[in-house]
Design a binder for these strands. Sequence first.
DNA 1: CCGATTTCAGTAAGACTGATATTA
DNA 2: CTAATATCAGTCATACTGAAATCG
Lengths: 175, 175
Amino acid sequence: MPKPLNLAFDPVARAQELWRQRWDAADSMAVATSVMRVQQLLIARYDETLRGHGLTFARYEALVLLSFSRAGLPLSKIGERLMVHPTSVTNTVQRLAADGLVARSPNPRDGRGTLATITEAGRAAVRAATDDLVALDFGLTALDSDDRARLFALLRKVRAAAGDFFGTSGPDERR
Amino acid sequence: MPKPLNLAFDPVARAQELWRQRWDAADSMAVATSVMRVQQLLIARYDETLRGHGLTFARYEALVLLSFSRAGLPLSKIGERLMVHPTSVTNTVQRLAADGLVARSPNPRDGRGTLATITEAGRAAVRAATDDLVALDFGLTALDSDDRARLFALLRKVRAAAGDFFGTSGPDERR
DNA sequence: CCGATTTCAGTAAGACTGATATTA
DNA sequence: CTAATATCAGTCATACTGAAATCG
């Protein structure tokens, strides 16, 4: 958990100025650095909160995804949705299964596949953990409703361009 | 490297809808998920690019920081600026030193401390790697100049509130 | 003596490669 | 046969805890 730094200056803005004196794309660098830093700050908060429920953020994400499915999901689907490597999915699901939060079963519609299904204990864990994260407002209380919409839209542009959905290049971004 | 998914829908928006039917803070959740996902997409691109220079993004960040300092920096300062655990700083600097990109020396102004200084090889590596990342525009070509400024400002709000600088709570955010 | 700086030993979660069994 | 699914073995970079040495 990164303790508050209380720096008297914004380290990213400082880096941006120095960068500009030497290289191009200083604004992009500053945005990229900001994304990394915010991710770091947020996930530290989440993991700290989730530790009380025996979860990491990676496991929590998988559990939430499974909580949205009645019949369970093939591991391949989980990996696709969460952008996680196949072997990492196997690992995550095994850990969740070891904790009784998920059940593994052969996929009836594909003899090669495995189906992961959330258990009642899993649903209870998701509920409890989610209550805590919602109470934190996911660490985003600094943003009002408009800010959130704007931030989401901007990040969505980046995701679309990076091939998160709609193919590898930007889609018709409404307008 | 996350291959393009080409999903016909936005997975984060889909999760947001399902979330809203069951819990509060759906917008915050969507923003948080977007941050995680963009970070994942960007760092995969960066690491792929940097691999050609024998660097990871973590090592690259440390090298860039050191390239902005003539006299070198104490490891404690590096950890503070990059929000990295002390033992991780030691590890990172040792790896960079093993590759000849950084030199370690006792801190003349603090007998307990170690000073990390970038070498000429280190500066050359930073230059070459940076050229590649700038050519990518840090994976942010989808954003125009205004978008970047807006995104930076929004993320800055989150950072400030999370204690990245100016203390643990939000500062006077101009207006 | 207290606290800061750094290192070391060891643990842990996760990302990945390469190989393999199984089945579509 | 080829391709997809999942697993296993093993490696790797990183994050962390706890302890210790050194020095301000």
